[in-house]
């Protein structure tokens, strides 16, 4: 019945209203088998609500949810073959680590010896075997995170839902967990749906990313597509840093007919105007130089419009504040944002 072309998750006309607030607005989305899929957006953009609708914690206002080709719109969470890693981990405080991990098997009626063996294996996968008899209150944040992961994967769900799972960890630990998550997903081969507001996290981890805004998907694509060809000013601004020029500014600066964006690293500072074909140079004055270590962020005012340039030090002498420079760009690097 199911083949590899059946989407792991298919959302059709999904709608969720809380009173008069529209949290998810007529959403269509297909998530492929074995994909690391991220839902990226600011808080209140509807991404967590979509996750909760897939898990079954919320009921839809309209539309359908298909899991592996089957309509689960009306199914209870315990009848859906998906599992969630919660933002606050939601470990059972009265059970120790191994009991927490074995819980999903216990409620399915798996025998004690068998479920403990499976739980131990899952704990080994997240490198926590040594802490099996600890209570959750005796663990650090990173360790709790791993227990929550082990508890969710021990029942072999078709899809794993992760709700900002790294949000509460500090930067170093977060980077380490990102690598482990990606590793785990490759090893298990199951579909991961990852909710985050951290664009860098979404870009580094995902096969595909959906950028959410106001209950809708602004753009869906690979990290590279989102970064290099943002479809709207919102995406250009939310994913990485961009110079975004509204239509009037774009017209004045580069003669474009619609709003455009360009990444700071695609701009160069030159002492003279470029004469290359396909290139153009805008005269301006340096207003700010921010040292970043490997590079500097230089802000140049061109016709009163601030333009951010990522300046690599090997590309010539450091620009001085108030010096007159040219911002040189290739017209092919300009991304039209429509209107």
């Amino acid at each position: 019945m199911r083949s590899d072309t059946t989407p792991a998750i298919q959302l059709v006309g999904l709608q969720k209203n809380f009173g008069s607030t529209v949290a998810v607005d007529n959403l269509d989305l297909e998530i492929r088998q074995g994909e690391f899929f991220s839902m990226l957006g600011p808080s209140g953009s509807g991404k967590t609500t979509v996750l909760r609708l897939i898990a079954g914690f919320e009921t839809v206002s309209a539309g359908q949810v298909f899991l592996d080709g089957q309509d689960v719109t009306k199914s209870a969470p315990f009848d859906r073959d998906v599992n969630t890693v919660f933002q606050d981990y939601a470990l059972f405080p009265h059970m120790n680590v191994i009991e927490n991990v074995a819980y999903g098997l216990r409620v399915r009626g798996v025998g004690k010896a068998e479920r403990l063996a499976a739980a131990n294996e899952a704990l080994a996968t997240v490198q926590l075997s040594a802490l099996a008899t600890r209570k959750p209150s005796e663990l650090s944040g990173g360790q709790r995170q791993r227990v929550a992961l082990a508890r969710a994967i021990v029942v072999r769900p078709k899809v794993l839902l992760l709700d900002e799972p790294l949000g509460a960890l500090d930067l170093k630990l977060r980077e380490q967990m990102q690598i482990e998550l990606k590793d785990l997903q490759r090893k298990l081969g199951i579909t991961f749906i990852f909710v985050t507001h951290d664009q860098e996290e979404a870009l580094t981890l995902s096969d595909r990313v959906a950028v959410f805004n106001n209950g809708r998907i602004e753009q869906l694509g690979t990290p590279r597509q989102l970064y290099e060809e943002p479809a709207s000013a919102f995406v250009a601004g939310f994913v990485g840093t961009s110079n975004i020029f509204a239509t009037t500014e774009a017209k004045a600066l580069v003669g474009a007919t619609s709003a455009v964006s360009i990444r700071p690293e695609r701009l160069q500072l030159t002492k003279t105007a470029s004469v290359d074909a396909g290139a153009m140079s805008l005269p301006g004055r340096v207003t700010e130089v921010i040292y970043l270590g490997a590079a500097a962020r230089v802000i140049v005012s061109c016709q009163g419009i601030p333009i951010t340039v990522l300046y690599q030090f090997e590309a010539g002498p450091t620009p001085e504040r108030d010096s007159e420079v040219f911002v040189t760009l290739r017209q092919a690097d300009l991304v039209s944002l429509g209107n």
């Binding site: 914690f57 470990l91 059972f92 409620v107």
Partner: peptide
């Protein structure tokens, strides 16, 4: 008893009565 504990129990396959017996009652 936080709501996410009840959600987690349901998510892991426990029906309401099981959740009450294994999670709510002990806490």
């Amino acid at each position: 008893v936080s709501n996410t504990l009840l959600e987690a129990s349901s998510d892991l396959g426990a029906k309401s009565l099981t959740t009450i017996r294994l999670v709510v009652a002990p806490l």
